[in-house]
Amino acid sequence: MGVQTEVVSATEKRSTLIARLHEVQEREGYLPAVEIAAIAKEMGMSAAQVMGVATFYNHFRLRPPGKHSIKVCDGTACHVKGSNKLLDRIEAELNIQPGESTEDGMFTLHVVACLGACSMAPAMVIDDDVHGRVSPRQLKRILNSYRRRQ
């Protein structure tokens, strides 16, 4: 029957939840279950509620990602300029579906809606690099450059 003296108001604390999740994911690459439990405690929420928030947003991952993250844009502009072809190629090349990681743990593939580089469509972002006007043919070269980078 613990009486917790609240320093910061509960609502204020809760409003930092998404920022906290970003922070953990930035550090760990994903949201480990122990961290979710710890954040829940800190926020005065149930772990399930934190999980509910974490799984609502596209950005958060519950499993460790590959070394490099590939985000292929399927926004309108990219779609019209053939992003599905690009995606098909990546899927074939890496043998994974969106949301999955390659067996060697090198790449994780995501499909996102609009990277904000629409005029360079089709666009994709690998790690923090934006690649614009990617033709399926260039793809191998680009991927290899990351493979070499390790």
């Binding site: 149930s46 399930a48 509620q49 999980m51 509910g52 799984t55 609502f56």
Partner: peptide, 14 residues
């Protein structure tokens, strides 16, 4: 959540 203050079940994903 509101009546029983347990909140062990919650909507996940979207």
């Amino acid at each position: 959540a509101d009546v029983q203050a347990v909140a062990c079940i919650t909507p996940l994903k979207r």
